[in-house]
């Protein structure tokens, strides 16, 4: 009997369904969107595929470039904050015992299983003018007034509908994307390397800088890319938490398909977003090949 691994019929039978699925639900829609991106509006609902690059050219208009620049900047800031917050969390998790690890991982994963809309509205409830934070501050303010501090009247902090709110929301949503790859990389790290560093006279910070970070570099690179890409394409969070000036690229795309009714331009923007994403994947692959010599055995 032939080994099933060499049996071509078996291979085709198992691969057929995913390939068909991938084709119908990914390749064809993408092709349609791409076709739209080189088309023109000829009526309220009709698009003629004319092969024009005018839609792509429109993306270089200053106001569109600003949105793209803002998107990249906000996503980059989000990624950086995620790294700074997630690194100690992931490191601490690797030192927990096995039972605690399961619970900590569950806590990190839990938001994933909650609807994004619910989480975002919860964040609004916390941050709005009459929200948890401002109410708490007002209470504190009142208390300080009664003990005689001359503070003046209470001004609620403008926490919502600005770039601050967008970054807070993006960090909140994307933190697990950073924690998990970092945790995976740090957990694989031989703990005796850390002990060896301490034993040789290095302090904790020196050990992190000279041993842990270099060895976790592939995990850090993975975390940066995996966090940055969805943050760059984030739609709901900036849309709900940002103000009118804090548009990100996904909201701009949405507007083309809906309010502006300019499907060709929306399609072109979608592809530009995808090209940027692919660029970052390429950067990651490059970094990995460079880092692979160090990290892997």
């Amino acid at each position: 009997m032939k080994d099933w691994r060499e049996d071509k019929t078996f291979f085709r039978a198992t691969i057929a369904l995913p390939v068909i699925w991938f084709f119908i639900f990914f390749v064809i829609p993408m092709a349609i969107v791409w076709a739209y991106s080189v088309g023109e509006n000829v009526g309220p609902v009709d698009v003629a595929i004319t092969g024009t690059f005018a839609n792509y050219a429109k993306a270089f208009a200053p106001e569109v470039l600003k949105v793209m620049g803002d998107s990249i900047w906000l996503a980059a800031l989000t990624t950086l904050i995620c790294l700074v917050v997630a690194f100690p969390v992931a490191l601490a998790m690797t030192f927990a015992d096995d039972k605690q690890k399961t619970w900590l991982l569950l806590l990190i994963m839990l938001p994933f299983w909650t609807n994004l809309l619910i989480r975002t509205y919860a964040l609004i409830a916390v941050m709005r003018t009459s929200g948890v934070i401002n109410t708490g501050l007002e209470g504190l303010h009142g208390l300080l007034m009664t003990v005689g501090l001359p503070l003046g009247s209470f001004e609620p902090l403008p926490l919502l509908y600005n770039k601050f709110a967008v970054v807070v929301g993006l960090v909140y949503v994307h933190l697990p994307f950073m924690v998990l790859p970092l945790y995976a990389a740090l957990d694989r790290l031989d703990k005796s390397l850390i002990e060896a560093s301490l034993d040789l006279g290095a302090g904790h910070l020196e050990t992190i800088r000279r041993v842990i970070v270099p060895l976790a570099a592939p995990g850090i690179a993975a975390g940066l890319v995996i966090t940055f890409i969805p943050a760059l394409g984030a739609y709901l969070t900036p849309d709900l938490l940002g103000g009118p000036d804090d548009l990100m690229i996904a909201s701009l795309i949405e507007r083309q398909f809906k309010r502006a009714n300019d499907w060709p331009f929306g399609a072109a923007l979608s592809f530009i977003l995808m090209y940027i994403t692919l660029l970052f994947f390429a950067v990651r692959a490059f970094l990995e090949r460079k880092g692979g010599k160090v990290g892997a055995h």
Partner: peptide, 20 residues
């Protein structure tokens, strides 16, 4: 006195040589 301030050094079972 923490490990990094002790006048002792260790050879680990896994050697713990820094791979990078």
């Amino acid at each position: 006195i923490p490990p990094n301030k002790r006048p002792v050094n260790m050879v680990f079972q896994s050697y713990a040589v820094f791979p990078h």
